[in-house]
Nucleic acid binder design. Structure first.
Lengths: 263, 263
DNA sequence: TAGATTGTTAATCGATTAACAATC
DNA sequence: TAGATTGTTAATCGATTAACAATC
C-alpha cells in the first residue's frame, strides 16, 4: 500500500468504548505507541501491522489492538495501520495537538535536565518559564531561558494561561510550591519531589520518583543471587535488633534532593 | 506503647503468601511505604496504625494491610506497627540492607542530577562510577566523583561487582551502552533513554520516561476544559489531512535528550 | 474487660490474553 | 479469490476493596 490510504468508512464518530472513557492502563501506554510510531514516521514507513508495532513498543499485539479499539477503528483489515494517521489520532487523544505552556519550579540539576529535555517540546509542551526562589539561581539561564523569581509565578501563569506545573524542588518546599501553583490556576502537577502532595479536588498530581524504580530493580536482583527462592534469613532480626538499622548519615529530613531552592 | 515492643510470636518463618512471591503491584508500593516510615522514624514516632501510614503514603488502608500481609505478620492487633521494625523488614524485602554498587552512564544534566540524588545513597545504592564517552566530559567531576571513560567500564564492573547500571545517554547510544553493560556482567538496568532496549533472558530492564507522565497529565487536562465529555471534534481529520501534522523542527531522530554522549 | 486494630476472606473490579469471525 | 490482519469476544488472571473475626 503506497499512497492509497484506507477509506475509513467508520471514521466519523465511533468511540467504540462503551460507557465511559479510555482505561487508565491504555492511556498510560499511548505515549509508548506514539514514540514507536514517530520513529516509523521518521523512517517514512507508510503502514505498520499490530504485530510489528507491538514489538517496537514492547507490548503484545493483542493488547495493542485492544488499546486501539478504545480509540476507534483506525486500522485496515489485511493491511495494518496508516502510520501518519495513527500518529495524529493518538496525539489528538492525548491532547498533544495543542500547545501546553508549562512552568518548571526549582532549577537544580533535574530542573535543568527537564528544561533541556527535547521530549517535551516535540510533544506540544512549551516551557513558559523556569522559576526558582534562590536569588543565586535567579537570573542565570537554562536551555536558553532565563530563570525567573518565584514571585513572578502568578503573573506568568495568568498571562500564558499555564495549566501544568512541574515541581523539581527539594521535598521541604514542594507542598508550599504546590499550593502556590494551585492558587495561580494550575490544575495539573508533575511532582519530582519525594513528597505526597495534597491538592483540592479537580487538581491532578502525578509523581515521578527516580529512586523507586531502582528499588524495584534491587528487589528482583536480590532474588537472582538468592537462587532457589530467596528465603535467605527466614528468621530475621527481632524488633529489638531492628532498631540498630543502618542509616545513611544524612542530616535532618530525608534530604533526597540536592539543595536547590531554600524558599 | 512506649518501649514495650510487641512480642511477634509469629516472627520466625511465615511467608504468609501462598505459592510464589509478592505481587508486582505490592513490590511497587513498598518504596512508598518505606519513605513514609522513614519520615516517621526521623520524627521518632514509635508505632503507626495502618490507617495513619496509609494516609501518609497516599493509599487506602485495606490495600496497605493486604500488602503487608504478603511480607508476614509484622503488626500487633489493637496497637499497630512498630515503625523501626517495619522499616527494617521492608528494607530487607527490597534488598536495601545490602550495598548495591551502581554505574551511571551518560553524564549530562540528568546523569548529574542522579549522581547528586540523595535518595540513592540513603537506600543502599552506591555510585561506583560515572561514565561517559565524550572526552570533553571525561575528567570533569559530578557529585564529588570523577567522570571516567566508558572504556573503564569492564574493569570497574568486575572490581566493584556492579550488577546495576543506569543509562542516561541519548537514545541513539542506549542499546550499545546496554549491550556493553550486559557483557560486563550487569543484570539490572534502569533506562532513562527513550528507547526500547533488547536484553537477554535474566537481565531486568526498567524504564523511566520523563515525558510520559506529562503526556498522561495532558490527557486528563484536556478532558477538564472539554467539559461534558471531551468529544471535541468527533469527526477528526481524514487520513490525508493527518499527513500535515505539526511536528517540532527537530533534526534527524527523535533527539529527545540533550546531546551528551556521542559514542 | 472494653476498645482498637490487624490479618484475612470473599466479592468486585479492571486488565490481559488467546482465539477467531469479519473484512480488506 | 486467497492471504493477511484487524476488531471483538470471552475466558482468565491479578489487583482492589469492604467487611469482620481474631486477638492484642
Amino acid at each position: 500500500m503506497a499512497t492509497g490510504r484506507p477509506t475509513h468508512p467508520a471514521d466519523r464518530g465511533r468511540p467504540a468504548n462503551r460507557g465511559r472513557g479510555i482505561p487508565e492502563a491504555t492511556v498510560a501506554r499511548l505515549p509508548l505507541y506514539l514514540r514507536a510510531l514517530t520513529a516509523l514516521s521518521e523512517r517514512s514507513v507508510p503502514t505498520v501491522s499490530s504485530e510489528e508495532l507491538a514489538a517496537a513498543a514492547g507490548v503484545n499485539s493483542a493488547k495493542l489492538r485492544k488499546d486501539f479499539s478504545y480509540l476507534g477503528s483506525y486500522g485496515t483489515r489485511g493491511v495494518g495501520y496508516d502510520v501518519e494517521y495513527l500518529v495524529y489520532q493518538i496525539s489528538r487523544e492525548l491532547g498533544l495537538t495543542q500547545d501546553w505552556p508549562v512552568v518548571i519550579v526549582g532549577i537544580g540539576n533535574l530542573g535543568h535536565a527537564l528544561a533541556n529535555y527535547g521530549g517535551f517540546a516535540s510533544r506540544g509542551f512549551r516551557v513558559a518559564a523556569l522559576l526558582d526562589a534562590d536569588p543565586a539561581v535567579v537570573g542565570s539561564s537554562a536551555a536558553g531561558l532565563p530563570v525567573r523569581h518565584m514571585d513572578e509565578l502568578e503573573q506568568i501563569a495568568e498571562e500564558e494561561q499555564v495549566s501544568i506545573g512541574v515541581i523539581t524542588t527539594p521535598p521541604g518546599a514542594a507542598q508550599q510550591v504546590c499550593d502556590r501553583l494551585v492558587a495561580a490556576g494550575v490544575t495539573s502537577i508533575l511532582n519530582f519531589a519525594p513528597t505526597v502532595l495534597s491538592v483540592p479536588d479537580g487538581v491532578d498530581v502525578r509523581k515521578v520518583d527516580l529512586s523507586i524504580e531502582l528499588q524495584i530493580l534491587a528487589f528482583h536482583e536480590q532474588r537472582k543471587s538468592g537462587e532457589d527462592g530467596a528465603e535467605q534469613s527466614v528468621t530475621g532480626p527481632t524488633p529489638k535488633a531492628a532498631t540498630k538499622l543502618r542509616r545513611a548519615p544524612s542530616s535532618g529530613t530525608d534530604g533526597e534532593f540536592p539543595a536547590v531552592m531554600p524558599a
